[in-house]
Design a protein around this nucleic acid. Structure first.
Length: 472
DNA sequence: CCTGGAGTTGTCCTA
DNA sequence: TTAGGACAACTCCAG
């Protein structure tokens, strides 16, 4: 009789390389049954991230098949499905990579204690972060609430090297039944846009490491300057891969350090960006409320609009606020599933300050549209923009969407890439937006470009007044 | 416990 | 044209 298998429960760790849990399972001498469960947390994903997840699952499935293994797909409550698989296969253990966002933590805690009661070895491994949230402490006690001191504290920390992918993944004698990924219809919520969005995705472990290599070789030298210019491809683009665990932060970290030692001074800023991701997760871990309410509770009394139906909110979502930088960025997100970082700051500032709308409206829309959606980074970013978060932007810092254009899109490469109205020969990218949006939005490239729903100067003054009179 | 420095990403006005 | 200061006040963090 063969040894009891180990269930390798994949979630946001859809890779074979540098995978502590998979390596441990594969070298245990027991058969390994990889499994992905379409559980309520997957069901709750927004349209774009869910579609992107489906692509990643398909890619992982292929990689496993190439190693003589398989990815078993099940749909249902995570614990219930794991228990069924244990009953079907005689598995004695379940391994997974830890996640740190509140919903995942709650699920995983419950799964772990229930499995242990069942007499199953439930083991979680690190990998999604460089530094476990409970290991980084300020000298005054507690977790870091300000980024820079955290960076100073961790930047010299030795990070272990990545692991190679396991040479072999021992297969069981018989495989349990698997559902068919196509039946999950992961792109269904995309309506018209799935194919276009897919064409902008770079899916899987191989793409991710290729992307990292190309970034280090070609873009790191000019990273500080170019990463701020949305018309230029200056950033790494790795967020899409990091969020599904197609690459690990420590692989990126080591590549960055190597480049720094090679004299590429901009590498430090890249490493700092990785630590921003850590910072967001540490905050989410230590103060889970950051994902659903004002981190600074004083802000509960601030009179943000919470009505999603407000005309200004619709204009913002649809990229027709009449402010080109805002609209270009919103359309970029709708079409590609990503948005340049400067765009994210500008659209967030415009929604929360000029339009005085609650950051949760923006956070939820991002969660529906971003293929690199990440529960921790999204919440932290929105609260930073709104002013309600830790280490947040002060209220008088209101991005001017007009002057930002002259600073960061001087030649209008970015706005022309995404805005068709008023141009004799609109770019193909700007036209692809109209192939994706619901027809009910009733927008076309021949429309007159709208006047601002709230002009930059009017909105700025209104925001400053509201923020100044907030009474706390 | 107290002290002092610092804090991702900006804007606008003035000299 | 450009550089510097005001815009507030508070919390965090190291010493």
């Amino acid at each position: 009789m063969s040894k009891p298998p180990i269930l390798m429960w994949f979630r946001r760790d859809l890779r074979l390389g540098d995978h502590e849990a998979l390596t441990a399972a594969s070298s245990s001498g027991q058969p390994v049954i990889p499994v992905f469960i379409h559980d309520p947390l997957v069901a709750a994903l927004g349209a774009a991230p869910k579609m992107r997840l489906g692509l990643s699952i398909a890619d992982l499935s292929k990689s496993l098949a190439a190693k003589g293994s398989r990815l078993i797909l099940r749909r249902g409550d995570a614990l219930a499905e794991l228990r069924k698989l244990i009953a079907e296969t005689g598995a004695g253990a379940v391994y997974w990579s830890r996640q740190y966002d509140p919903d995942s933590v709650a699920r995983d805690k419950a799964v772990k204690s229930a499995l242990k009661e069942d007499g199953i070895a439930a083991e979680s491994f690190k990998g999604h972060l460089l530094f476990e949230p409970w290991t980084v402490q300020a000298k005054t006690g507690g977790y870091y609430k300000v980024y820079t001191p955290m960076w100073k504290a961790v930047c010299g920390t030795e990070v272990p090297s990545g692991l190679p992918a396991p040479g072999t993944i021992p297969a069981p004698d018989t495989w349990p039944r698997s559902e068919d990924l196509d039946d999950w219809q992961m792109g269904a919520a995309m309506q018209r846009g799935a194919d276009i969005l897919t064409s902008h995705c770079r899916v899987g472990e191989l793409s991710a490491s290729g992307r990292l290599g190309a970034f280090i070789a070609n873009n790191l030298r000019t990273y500080i300057k170019n990463r701020d210019i949305p018309g230029v491809q200056g950033a790494s683009g790795l967020s899409e891969n990091l969020t599904y665990g197609e690459i690990t932060p420590r692989i990126c970290w080591h590549a960055g350090w190597q480049a720094w030692r090679d004299g590429k001074s901009d590498a430090e800023v890249f490493l700092k960006e990785l630590v921003w991701r850590e910072f967001a997760y540490h905050l989410a871990y230590h103060t889970p409320r950051i994902t659903w309410q004002n981190w600074k509770e004083d802000w509960d009394s601030f009179p943000w609009n919470t009505d999603e139906c407000l005309a200004e909110v619709q204009a913002w979502k649809r990229g027709r606020t009449g402010l080109r930088f805002v609209d270009a960025a919103m359309r970029e997100m709708y079409v590609t599933g990503t948005m340049h970082n400067r765009g994210r700051m500008i659209v967030a500032s415009y929604l929360t300050k000029h339009l005085l709308c609650h950051w949760k409206i923006g956070m939820n829309w991002f969660a529906d549209c971003l293929i690199d959606w990440d529960p921790a980074s999204n919440a932290m970013g929105w609260q930073w923009s709104a002013g309600s978060g830790p280490d947040a932007s002060p209220y008088f810092r209101v991005f001017n969407p007009v002057t930002q254009l002259d600073k960061f899109d001087k030649d209008r490469t970015y706005v022309n890439r995404w805005i068709a109205e008023g141009r004799d020969t609109p770019s193909a990218t700007s036209l692809s937006f109209y192939d994706m949006i619901p027809r009910s939005w009733d927008m076309g490239p021949g429309d007159r470009y709208p006047d601002p729903v709230v002009p930059a100067d009017v909105g700025r003054q209104r925001a400053l007044d509201a923020y100044q009179n907030r009474g706390f």
